[in-house]
Amino acid sequence: MKQLDIKKYTPSLKLQNCIDAYWSVKNIYTKDVQIPIVPDGCMDIIYQDGKILCIGAMSEAFIVSAKPREYTFGIRFKPSVLPQLLKINASEFTDKKVFLQELSLELFSWLDFQELDEQKKVLKLNDIFEKEFENIELNQSITKAIEFIVDFQGNIQVSKLQEQLHLSSRQIERLFQNYVGYSAKKFCNIVRFFTLFKELIQDKKELSLKAYDYGYCDQAHLNKEFKKFSNFTPTHEIMSVFYNTKN
């Protein structure tokens, strides 16, 4: 039985370096639905219960309980982008949620509008954020570091980043704490986990082979890491409820 109505929308071409996706989730079931939220290095702005909230990057998984007919619309920003837009230190908001108006009254005033049609809402948000990002020059060092980690699916040593970016380990750590919310090593682990996690949702077979492919020592190491970041084992059915990527 279908319990959640989940939709995702791609941002405009101009925003695809900044916004990962617009998304919405509605519980269409008659009972509460438990939704696993796993860390991916992103920060979100969400509309929920008439409020607009800023959600910091998550360092570990947690479960949210969606009540019947509960509806959430979100804007998922790519790692490091939202802190630069809001001019905040990302590490101060890791694993936290705050009202957007406490961080930026100006952005809150732009986003505080009513629109039930999601496609129209996405178009309006595209217009708003295209204007917002016109005058923002994103930090190229953190952008390159994140791109490099993602290209290697998180399976990379921080020392390699130092070589590529010509930065000291202290400079790299400061960049990641300020713009992502945790250390470069932890971000690598999260990217590695999340990349494998999405693949496992599509195909749970041959876990031991996938473990080696992603740099884990063995399946036991993979299971330990997976449980640390998700609170579940790779084959647990609940993990595909919200993050199913088959369609």
Rank of each mutant, 00 (worst) to 15 (best):
K121R: 11
Q48A: 12
E70L: 08
D40M: 02
E60Q: 11
F232N: 05
K31G: 09
L200I: 12
Y47S: 06
V180G: 01
N135S: 14
F176R: 01
C54W: 08
T10A: 11
V150I: 13
L138H: 03
C217P: 05
K160D: 15
M239K: 03
D151T: 03
H236M: 09
I46A: 01
Q114P: 03
N223C: 15
E60P: 01
G56V: 04
C217M: 09
C18F: 15
K67C: 02
F113H: 02
N126D: 12
Q202D: 14
L85P: 00
R76Q: 13
S109P: 06
T233V: 09
K160G: 09
T143E: 12
G50F: 13
M1C: 15
L100E: 10
N89W: 07
L200Y: 01
K51L: 11
L209S: 09
L138Q: 05
G41N: 06
K198P: 07
V25S: 01
S208R: 08
F62H: 13
K7P: 03
D213L: 10
S24D: 13
A61V: 08
N139R: 11
F77V: 04
S141M: 06
C54N: 14
R69P: 00
A220L: 06
S65P: 04
S208M: 01
L15V: 04
K2D: 11
H221G: 12
T30A: 06
G74N: 05
M58K: 13
Q3V: 10
L207Q: 00
D20Q: 14
R76K: 10
W23I: 07
A90Y: 01
K67V: 14
I52K: 12
C217E: 15
M43I: 04
E106P: 02
P68S: 03
L105K: 15
F194C: 13
E132W: 09
K8Y: 08
S24Q: 15
I190F: 01
I19L: 04
E106C: 05
Q16M: 09
L53S: 08
K121A: 07
D127A: 15
L167K: 10
A145T: 03
N139S: 09
D95Q: 04
Y9I: 07
L86H: 04
L209T: 11
E206T: 11
G50R: 14
L53I: 02
R174A: 13
D20N: 13
K228S: 09
N231T: 12
K7V: 07
F73D: 01
S104R: 06
S80V: 01
Q3G: 10
S230K: 02
S240I: 04
L165T: 08
S109N: 14
T143N: 12
G56L: 05
A21V: 08
S80N: 10
I88W: 05
I149A: 06
Y243Q: 10
D203N: 12
C188L: 02
H166E: 06
F148A: 11
I190Y: 04
K228Q: 12
T94S: 13
Y214Q: 02
G56P: 02
Q157A: 08
D49M: 04
K97G: 00
D213F: 09
F133E: 00
